[in-house]
Design a protein around this nucleic acid. Structure first.
Length: 470
RNA sequence: GCCCCCAUCGUCUAGUGGCCUAGGACACCACCCUUUCAAGGUGGCGGCACGGGUUCGAAUCCCGUUGGGGGUGCCA
């Protein structure tokens, strides 16, 4: 395949101030396809209003894409382009459409259009100015003259979709202030950037016949369309910023791994062959086909995302895990920053790795190592210290570990023999010690934690708890 | 209102007329393992929306119903 024949996929987010998980999935689809076909991923910031473009947003989106592995430095990445920069082109195209007789001027205001609709009992614009021969000017909009007949949109995921043209009103191309509408701008930019494939969310499907007519009227062959199902919340409504947690950045901050997010997003509406959904990106690039994408909306299930993430966390090397935790450990307010000890964390890290599903849970799990005194949970204290053996186990264990060989096996043996002598269960007798040392009833394995904490500090905490018992 | 799309376990999906007694994953439950909690192992629960066709045979094809979603701006 010659390079000029390679497909060009466009990804066109609008500047909403954050990067939507739905957009992330579409971006991934486009990127996967570009990679497999040797094509190009074209990024275009989609807004005809220059004032809404901000360098921060653009950088944010490039960062988010790069987090997803979509590298803006790749030779297969092009852009960012800015729709708003091309207004002159859009207007010129509108002029050409008018010159060819496919558009006409109209001086009705939105209110007047509505007024007429009310009178005729029909919806939308009724084509009032079609044959009035207006020549344009202030206060007039340019409307597309929707031809008779029907428009068939051929879609890779949905097949042929037919729209009767008389259900499509003569839509506006140029506003009365002369600025181009999004729909027009979009088509002109796609033509200009030689876009061959448009993969976007299903919500755009009803507008596609309009765009297709624009492609036709400009004398170009429309691209290959693919409308993928939208992502929905538990109410089955399209994910929205107001109701739902949709910002990719939020998940990133919580310690969702990019690979987990990528993998999860790809399985929404599509599944790799075989019995596992956790698969490497390279395999998804090889196997992903638009034709295989499901037709129905998919629920964005945070629990499943978390499960994927846990899987990816456990699959990390220990050094990788420690490195990934670093940002969360540095910024946490779980302990005074200066008390953190990287060696201590490295020692406990392997035991933390199987116990978290997101990285943001890590600090809370190891905070007792880096606090002057553990934060004692009152409920945990009440529950465990009320055992009749609580005081004895604390005193005897403290006495024994004062001189014990310092490793978790021997620490465990000490408590085991103490427990057996009294015909108790280790699960019960370790509880008061755990609360004394960590402040809670759950956490990393106890004897390993004590070993890492050190003899002196462990003794101090247990002694303090005995004193607290009174 | 009008137009369009969609319909397999609670959720994400496999399934493209016989391999389906409908497979997997997440969640849930139970058991095993176990120093708490996890992780891991084993097992379980649970679904083709409904009604008509077509066919020797339908989750798969057709029609209808119902239900959901999206669109319908001088927004993007």
């Amino acid at each position: 395949m010659r390079m000029t024949d390679a497909p060009r996929y466009r990804f066109a987010p609008s500047p909403t101030g954050f990067f939507h998980v739905g957009g992330a999935r579409t971006a991934l689809y486009n990127w996967a396809l570009a990679l497999r076909t040797g094509g190009t991923f074209v990024l275009r910031i989609e807004d005809t209003d220059e004032s809404r473009n901000s360098p921060e947003w653009t950088q944010g989106i490039i960062d988010a894409l790069s987090w997803l592995g979509i590298d803006s430095n790749s030779p297969q990445f092009e852009g960012p382009y800015f729709q708003s920069h091309n207004a002159a082109l859009h207007v010129a195209a509108a002029q050409r459409i008018f010159d060819a007789g496919h558009a006409y001027w109209c001086d009705l205001t939105p209110d007047q259009v509505q007024e007429r609709a009310k009178e005729t009992g029909k919806q939308g614009y009724d084509g009032y100015s079609r044959d009035r021969g207006l020549t344009g000017g202030p206060g007039q909009v340019l409307r597309f003259r929707v031809p008779a007949g029907s428009t068939v949109v051929t879609d890779l995921v949905r097949g042929d979709v037919e729209f009767a043209n008389d259900t499509i009103e003569d839509f506006v191309l140029l506003r009365s202030n002369g600025s181009p509408m999004f729909l027009l701008a979009n088509v002109v930019d796609d033509i200009e950037m030689r876009i061959t494939n448009v993969v976007r969310a299903e919500e755009h499907l009803p507008n596609t016949p309009k765009q297709q007519m624009l492609w036709d009227s400009l004398g170009h062959t429309p691209p290959i369309w693919a409308h993928v199902p939208v992502l929905v919340n538990e109410q089955r409504k399209k994910l929205s910023k107001r109701r739902d947690k949709v910002a990719l950045e939020q998940y990133r901050a919580e310690g969702i791994l990019p690979d987990a997010m990528i993998n999860y997003l790809m399985t929404l509406g599509w599944a790799p062959a075989g019995d596992t959904e956790i698969v490497p990106w390279s395999l998804m690039v090889d196997e992903f086909r638009l034709e295989d994408v499901n037709h129905s909306p998919a629920f964005f299930d945070v629990k499943k995302l978390a499960a994927f993430n846990g899987d990816y966390i456990r699959a990390m090397t220990i050094d990788g895990f420690i490195a990934a935790c670093a940002p969360h450990l540095e910024t946490t307010e779980a302990w005074p920053h200066e008390r953190f000890n990287a060696d201590v964390f490295a020692a406990i890290a392997p035991l933390v790795q199987t116990r978290v599903v997101t990285l943001s849970e890590v600090p809370a799990m190891v905070d007792f190592f880096f606090l002057q005194d553990p934060t004692i949970d009152q409920a945990a204290w009440d529950k465990t210290m009320s055992a009749d053996f609580a005081r004895d186990v604390l005193k005897d264990f403290a006495a024994a570990i004062a001189t014990a060989e310092w490793n978790h096996d021997s620490l465990k043996q000490i408590l085991e023999s103490w427990t057996e002598a009294r015909e108790l269960k280790l699960g019960k007798t370790q509880a008061p010690i755990r609360v004394a040392v960590t402040g809670r009833t759950v956490g990393p394995p106890l004897f390993e934690s004590i070993e890492i904490l050190g003899r002196e500090e462990s003794l101090r905490r247990i002694t303090a708890s005995i004193a607290r018992l009174g």
